[in-house]
Amino acid sequence: MSTIFLLLILLLGFLITFQIAKASEYVGVLKGEKKNFEQNNRVNGFLMIAFLVLGLIGVWWCNDLYKGKILGEAASSHGKEIDTMLYITIAITGVVFFITQILLFWFAYKYQYSEKRKAYYFPHDNRLEIIWTVVPAIALTVLVGFGLFYWFRITGEAPKDALQVEVTGKQFGWIFRYPGKDNTFGKKYFKNISDKDGNSLGLLWDDPYSHDDIVVGNEMYIVKNQPVKLIINSRDVVHDVGLVHFRMKMDAVPGTPTTMWFTPIYTTDEMKEKTHNPDFEYEISCDQMCGRGHYTMRAIVKVVTPEEFILWKAKQKPNFVQVFPAKEPSSAVKTDSTAGSPMKAGL
């Protein structure tokens, strides 16, 4: 009912606008075309400068309103660098933005039609054109320089002591794998995946390295001040590991593993204090359209101290043990043929 009411009001608004528009056209004819044009021109010229002034106030106001709600403190060393880059870019583009917008609307206002003014024939000027080719080129060189400096630091090789975690996206959730005591991931093959048999990643049980691999969902534990290297996979469609607080992001592509690394610098508990938010959690969001549940594809990252991490890891049962509770990890080196459905894959 209220919708119909709204539509009626809209229609009425239309009719009124149309009638006014029509009437002003007739009035214009009566007033004489020239006078009417000059009047309209003055109004629009005034609106140009009004738009500029109100717009600038609006920009300032909007920034004031939201500056506390964005970014927050970056929680990784890469994130700090990205934030620095962001502020450099905001500064340079901000200057250009204000200069050009002010000139645009100021010129529009200042040089609006006047009977007395003659437009100035000014078809080109090589000096000016060289200036505004060279100046932007220099500014952009600076930005490219800074940008690539950070880019290569961020995308370079992960340090040797990095904690390795394999992240796998699926519709619609995340699976994490830790290599276990041997610090080596066991082989896997996607045709071995079976949620029913508890093998959500398709680990190959005849590869002994897989026996101590820990597989968990929903929560990824990483260690403060220890670099972490994520090896990113997807089980079905393209997903993306988005880590807002660490300012990191990388696609999860089926069939083509990707990697990224960073060093978390605050534990989850420290962030709770920093943000004055007792419910704070680091979230993983899927940033690449992946189907109907895309907007709910969430997981949590727990950044903990080294001691807490050891405790947590000790509590985790390897996937192999979960699937074959009879086989204790210490005794199992060689597997027999009944284990799962071993497939030799050229991985």
């Binding site: 044009f37 645009l104 040089y111 039609y113 003014r117 003659k118 437009a119």
Partner: peptide
């Protein structure tokens, strides 16, 4: 726009 005689 500079030094034009602008008709809106």
């Amino acid at each position: 726009l500079w030094k034009g005689n602008i008709r809106f």
